[in-house]
Simulated assay, not measured.
Amino acid sequence: MNPQQVYDVIIAGAGPAGMTAAVYTSRANMRTLLIEKGSPGGQMVNTEDIENYPGYESVLGPELSQKMFDHARKFGADYVRGQIREIRDGYPFKSVVLDDWEYKAKSVIVATGAEHRKLGVPGEKEFAGRGVSYCAVCDGAFFADMELVVVGGGDSAVEEAVFLTRYASKVTIIHRRDSLRAQKIIQKRAFENEKIHFIWNQQVLEIRGDSTVSGVLMQNTVTGEVLEYPCQGVFIYIGMDPISYCVKHLGITNDAGYIRTDEQMRTKLPGIFAAGDVREKTLRQVVTATGDGCLAAQSAQHYVEQLDERLKEQSLLESRNIS
């Protein structure tokens, strides 16, 4: 890899959207650079079982992540591991700024994904890694025979609660409403699991402990009653926030930070595209992310082809004027 070269496309993020985009762009003989700050796969790599990706009745998240990454690299895409600090618009080249280098490309696909939303309560930050976690697959084994709390009521919260029963002696789901938002088939698994218990209409106010977590302070959303519930670990799944800080200054995000695009994954800035969970849309799944990645790659390819034609014409005009 030559860091001095100008790429046809830089793909920011190696989740399912970014890796799919890399397959399509590199296969189209576009000079492609894929940049990822962590392990390829994004949120997918932290998912135990994926049961709704076509062609797989069930597949491990890390396994599917590796398969996608190998596929993305097969056709010659370059890969850099690093933290993207800023994406800069420009003509004819865009810039992607990392801690230690700046890369240039004719187009950029932003596929930086989303991250777990924080509760923002006392004790959450203090006990991170000492009883507070956002990844059951990563940390579940550290909580063997312990009593755990899962905060949330969506698909991720309930799926991870079921996963945690492999290790924990008891898992209690605390939800601020009186019913779950998860899909019915996922709810059914939780309700039928004797290790899983539910506490409804409760909002966590504080995570308590000494050297490690010892419990949560919660308030009833109906009565206002406050009480402490003992546990030895807290897993938080209350939603996702887009990882879009690197483009905030470009004016392409909505109020929540998600990037606005059209159906072809084009932002309002020519040559800058977005795909996957960082994009403003209604459904965020692996399969929708891969679809986004394909469309973004196609749009980037068309943009670069047109840009190359314009630059060629410009060069011809300049040479004629000189002569």
Rank of each mutant, 00 (worst) to 15 (best):
P3F: 02
Q4C: 04
Q5L: 01
V6H: 01
V9T: 05
A12M: 01
G13E: 00
G13W: 00
A14G: 02
A17T: 02
A17C: 02
A17V: 01
T20C: 07
R27C: 04
M30Q: 01
T32K: 00
L34Y: 00
E36R: 01
G38H: 13
S39H: 09
S39V: 15
G42V: 03
G42L: 05
M44P: 05
T47R: 11
E48N: 11
D49H: 15
E51R: 04
P54Q: 07
Y56A: 07
E57C: 14
S58Q: 12
S58W: 08
V59C: 11
V59L: 09
G61I: 08
P62W: 08
E63H: 11
K67L: 12
H71C: 01
G76W: 00
A77F: 02
I84G: 02
I84T: 04
E86I: 04
I87V: 11
D89C: 07
G90C: 05
F93G: 00
K94R: 07
S95I: 00
V96F: 00
L98H: 02
Y103L: 01
K106P: 03
V108E: 00
G113H: 04
A114E: 06
E124D: 09
G129H: 13
G129D: 13
R130C: 10
R130K: 15
Y134S: 13
C138A: 10
C138T: 13
F143S: 06
F143G: 07
M146C: 11
L148M: 12
L148W: 03
G152Y: 09
A157M: 07
E159K: 13
E159P: 06
F163R: 08
F163I: 08
L164P: 06
A168F: 04
H175R: 07
H175L: 11
D178N: 15
D178Q: 09
L180M: 13
A182D: 05
Q183L: 12
A190C: 13
K195Y: 14
N201M: 06
N201R: 15
Q202Y: 12
D210H: 14
V213A: 11
S214K: 15
E225F: 10
E228Q: 13
Y229I: 05
V234N: 11
F235D: 07
F235C: 15
Y237V: 10
M240I: 15
I243C: 15
Y245K: 14
H249N: 10
L250A: 04
L250T: 01
L250F: 04
G251W: 06
G251D: 06
G251I: 03
N254V: 03
D262T: 04
E263N: 09
E263A: 10
T267A: 06
G271H: 08
A274P: 03
A275G: 05
R279L: 02
T282Y: 09
T282H: 12
T290V: 15
A296F: 03
A300H: 03
L307F: 08
K312L: 10
L316M: 13
E318L: 10
S319C: 07
N321Q: 11
